[in-house]
Write a protein that binds this DNA or RNA. Structure first.
Length: 258
DNA sequence: TTCAAAGGTCTTGCTACTAG
DNA sequence: CTAGTAGCAAGACCTTTGAA
């Protein structure tokens, strides 16, 4: 049945209930009801899960139909007032990691003239997706949306605002050639205890490869990557699709394994 | 063995609906 | 229009698990 199917996928991807609940914008107990078959999925929830798991939405329908005949719950009409705006919640643990990665990246390359917000987004994207390809594990595990200029981490705004408030980074607006550029500078050292040696090495590797590209070059570069190409506009990029990457994007040597 | 994180359950409060 | 109620979601709390 669908509930078990979702649970299996979650475990296969090493994700927590907390993480998926926040990705769906619901509380953990509510998410639990889904895994226990006590609550139906809304269409948009099913779509989100499908994209997180990197499987076609159709597979959910099939898993569902193989049980009995119950309709996927109709999307409830939102209560008229405020509540409308999209809520993005970040699990505490990932937030810590996001912060430290950000500080680490900023402390290493934040001072480079080419590294503004746009380049930062893409560096984070490659850090996350390359890590997933190499180790089949989530690193920061941020959600990257397909935007006109490239992959955009949806959690970025929340995290950076929080950090500015706490005096951990400062925002600087300036010009880079003729473009308005938004830069961030780290005000404290990253806490390296949060990151493993393997993770730091991985970030260093990505930075060495990509941190000298400017926003335009990064944009062009990221637009040829498979996860980008296979995503729909405005929708999250699928982590699973990294396994369909080809040269020069692939960061894993598949022949060595087996 | 201890502690933090994840999983599981109970209770509370809100909203929408209905009968008077 | 109001009081009663059913259903749902979230917070609070408890238990289990696993890493150090």
């Amino acid at each position: 049945m669908l509930a078990k199917f979702i649970q299996k996928l979650r475990k296969k991807h090493n994700l927590t209930q907390e993480y998926l609940a926040s990705a769906l914008g619901i509380s953990r107990p509510t998410y639990m009801q889904i895994e226990r078959g006590e609550r139906e999925l809304t269409i948009t929830e099913a779509e989100k899960l499908a994209s997180i798991f990197g499987i076609p939405f159709e597979d959910f329908r099939r898993a569902k139909d193989s049980s009995i005949t119950v309709e996927i719950k109709k999307e409830k009409l939102k209560p008229k007032s405020e509540k409308q705006e999209i809520r993005i919640s970040v699990p505490q643990k990932n937030l810590e990691k996001f912060k430290e990665v950000l500080l680490y990246v900023l402390s290493k390359v934040g001072g480079k003239p080419n590294v503004g917000e746009a380049v930062l987004y893409k560096l984070l994207y490659f850090i996350d997706f390359d890590f997933y390809e190499k180790f089949e594990e989530q690193f920061i595990g941020a959600t990257y949306i397909k935007n006109h200029y490239g992959p955009t981490p949806v959690e970025f705004k929340i995290v950076i605002d929080d950090m500015i408030k706490n005096g951990e980074v400062v925002k600087v607006e300036g010009k880079y050639f003729n473009y308005l550029q938004r830069k961030y500078l780290a005000l404290r050292r990253p806490n390296l205890d949060i990151l493993s040696g393997r993770e730091i090495e991985h970030i260093d590797d990505v930075l060495a490869r990509l941190s000298d590209k400017n926003a335009k070059e990064m944009e062009i570069y990221s637009h040829e990557d498979i996860p980008w190409k296979t995503a729909e506009d405005g929708k999250p990029l699928s982590y699973e699709s990294v396994f369909y990457r080809n040269e020069p994007y692939s960061v894993r040597n598949y022949e060595d394994e087996l």
